[in-house]
């Protein structure tokens, strides 16, 4: 791909514009917005976790509008079937030819798919999302359909009300580039939210970019160089999550059952590149790795019984691992 200076310098500006536009509709949540954007620009899917009413759906909706992308929302329930997500062949009656099957695309055929409360669907339906999330295609009755580009799944799940839910299996979790926690707003933010949503003021959102521009940004971001020590840092962090490797920290050996898959490393590097670009740099820094490590690894590390019983979180483990790595690298 032929790049030029203007294109590269345009990326940061475009993202800034997107963020500014989203901020019109979203109060606070700046870090979340940035992380979601990073995830989208890296071409990945995000899992948003937070209690109801924090604006998850609103965020995804706004992003879709601002980016000029086709947006669809699927509310996952236990009786939701895979065909309800990806679509199905239906018989269409024709006067001349009689009845015939025609593929009726499901809501997944969008640029941005909001899989709301994904953990409420049965594993069968959840797994229907697997191919779409990873390969950006769906197969129905021996026919594979390409999903529109760009394609992102932004799934949400509720950490409470676990009764009657089906926790996402490890394989499916691994398909999400980021797992993001949606924080509760502060007092000021809450006040703004209430004011904004209970009044008559209507905020008009503008389309800041389009799918073509987004694809270009995604291409540009891949050109960002990563220095060898920085890459090693990221890879060592991944290896440090595996209790059986020589890089394993004491805490890893004690509390981790399974470490991150190589997809974790890919997630860290690809998102770190975007983050560097957004920070106005043409190189990935250690701090980019540290920044992206949490959302990229927190759902890829599985605690053992001891870890769970100690009440540890994967974020705490990641913090320890980063500290240890920084110490080793004298950063």
């Amino acid at each position: 791909m032929e790049l030029n200076e203007t294109q590269i310098q345009l990326v940061a500006k475009t993202v800034e514009k997107i963020e500014a536009e989203i901020s019109k509709q979203m109060v606070g949540q700046k870090e979340l917005i940035r992380q979601v954007l990073i995830c989208i620009l890296a071409g990945g899917n995000a899992l948003l976790e937070g209690v109801p009413g924090l604006g998850k759906t609103r965020l995804v909706n706004t992003i879709g509008k601002v980016m000029g992308l086709k947006f669809s929302r699927i509310q996952f329930t236990p009786d939701l079937m895979p065909a309800d997500v990806i679509g199905t062949n239906i018989i269409i009656k024709n006067d001349q030819e009689g009845g015939m099957f025609k593929f009726q695309p499901g809501p997944i055929f969008s640029n941005i798919v909001l899989a709301d409360e994904i953990n409420r669907a049965t594993p069968k339906t959840q797994s229907a999302m697997l191919q779409a999330m990873q390969e950006k295609t769906v197969t129905v009755a021996n026919t594979t359909y390409q999903l529109p580009k760009p394609f992102f799944v932004l799934a949400t799940q509720n950490p409470i009300e676990m009764e009657g839910t089906y926790p996402l299996p490890e394989a499916q979790l691994d398909r999400f580039l980021f797992k993001l926690y949606v924080p509760f707003p502060t007092l000021e933010e809450l006040a703004d939210i209430v004011t904004m949503t209970t009044g008559n003021t209507q905020t008009e959102l503008h389309e800041v970019t389009n799918s073509e521009e987004l694809l270009k940004i995604m291409e540009i971001s891949k050109e960002i160089p990563v220095a060898k020590p920085v890459l090693e840092y990221a890879l060592k962090l991944i290896l440090a999550t595996h209790p059986e490797t020589e890089y394993a920290h004491e805490i890893t050996k004690k509390f981790i059952r399974y470490g991150s898959s190589p997809r974790g490393a890919q997630a860290i590097i690809s998102t770190a590149k975007i983050r560097a670009l957004l920070e106005g740099r043409y190189n990935v820094a250690f701090e980019d790795i540290r920044y992206t490590a949490y959302p990229a690894l927190r759902h890829r590390i599985f605690l053992n019984f001891e870890g769970l019983s100690e009440g540890l979180t994967t974020d705490e483990i990641i913090t320890e691992l980063i500290k240890d790595l920084d110490k080793q690298n004298k950063i």
């Binding site: 590269i8 050109e223 220095a227 060898k228 020590p229 043409y282 190189n283």
Partner: peptide, 25 residues
């Protein structure tokens, strides 16, 4: 400098646009 120098050092023989931009930066 946030790993700008080490990256520039590694890219010293490269003459791509991104490498040049990186050195300038």
């Amino acid at each position: 400098l946030k790993e700008r120098l080490i990256t520039a050092w590694e890219l010293q023989k490269e003459e791509t646009i991104i490498a040049q931009l990186q050195r300038q930066d």
